[in-house]
Nucleic acid binder design. Structure first.
Length: 279
DNA sequence: ACTGGCTCCTGAGGGC
DNA sequence: TGCCCTCAGGAGCCAG
């Protein structure tokens, strides 16, 4: 499941297609999270002069407009030679001037492929996004301020892309573990010190995952079709019932907003409204 | 303004 | 072997 490090890994792997043009488009399945628009053909013969990322959105910039791609839950982009057989769920295929094909593959179809003619940052899906977690805009004070009015669990808040982009279920769980913060803690009960620790762990974990090519669980592959190799180092995600790697306590599973949330009750005590800690 | 629940979708895995 | 059920989850949307 692509999170920010996986999307960034994909972006870097696709840099060879810079300055190439799309010569041909085949849409095998247009029903993604949003319908693949007919005007995607406007990208034909336009050189891709930049490939950027905003949150988990990939942006292929051309003089005439921007191809915006989101990988959703199960999506991947692969740069392959045209003779490689098409796989099931290869929904969109872009044939490039350099001879390779860029194939968008997405079994669960939660992702999207759009064509933007306006400035990407003005598109509704991007306009309201929070700061990039690895930018200076994201700071301990920003995190502290943006949690003051939020009584929902801190895990939900850091996963809210309007607060900060790119923190999905895996990294949220891991960052909270390293910060020693219980995922269920009402966000507004975090102290500035808590926010400073959480800020550090979010940044550190994402940066480290990018450096190592992304986590992979289940279906993520990079643009060369390789899996990442970060998953063996996960501390809590997917380890419910196992023992904490730090204290040996049994890790607990909690369903939060219909999402599995694993934490160590010993290392991540719950802060109560009274300011006391509960183990 | 904030909150939680619902929705889209397919494939894996468990129970029988 | 096969059928049915549950679960996985990013993120927009909506009602309260």
């Amino acid at each position: 499941m692509p999170e920010l490090p996986e999307v960034e890994t994909t972006r870097r792997g696709l840099l060879p297609l810079l300055h190439q043009s799309v010569r041909h488009i085949t849409v095998h399945q247009s029903r993604l999270r949003q319908e693949v628009p007919n005007n995607l053909v406007e990208c034909l013969n336009q050189p891709i002069d930049a490939l950027t990322r905003r949150g988990k959105y990939l942006l292929f910039h051309t003089p005439k407009g921007t191809i915006m791609v989101h990988l959703g839950m199960s999506g991947s982009l692969r740069l392959v030679t045209p003779d490689l057989p098409l796989r099931k769920h290869d929904h969109v295929v872009l044939s490039l001037s350099g001879g390779l094909e860029l194939r968008y593959h997405d079994p669960r179809r939660f992702g999207l492929v759009l064509w933007l003619t306006e400035a990407p940052e003005q598109h509704p899906l991007l306009a309201s996004l929070g700061p990039e977690p690895l930018s200076t805009e994201f700071s301990p004070d920003y995190l502290y301020q943006s949690t003051r009015s939020r009584r929902s669990p801190i895990k939900s808040v850091i996963m809210d892309s309007h607060v900060v982009v790119g923190v999905g279920n895996i990294y949220a769980a891991e960052a909270l573990f390293y910060a020693g913060i219980n995922p269920l803690t009402p966000a507004n009960l975090l102290s500035l010190l808590d926010c400073q620790r959480l800020y550090v762990t979010i940044k550190h974990i994402l940066a480290q995952a990018i450096e190592r090519g992304g986590t992979t669980l289940r279906d993520f592959v990079n643009s060369q079709g390789e899996t990442g190799y970060f998953q063996q180092e996960l501390m809590v995600y997917g380890r419910e019932g196992d023992h904490c790697r730090v204290c040996g306590h049994r890790l607990e599973l909690h369903r939060l907003n219909n999402r599995s949330t694993v934490y160590c009750p010993q290392c991540q005590p719950l802060i109560l409204a009274s300011g006391q800690y509960s183990v």
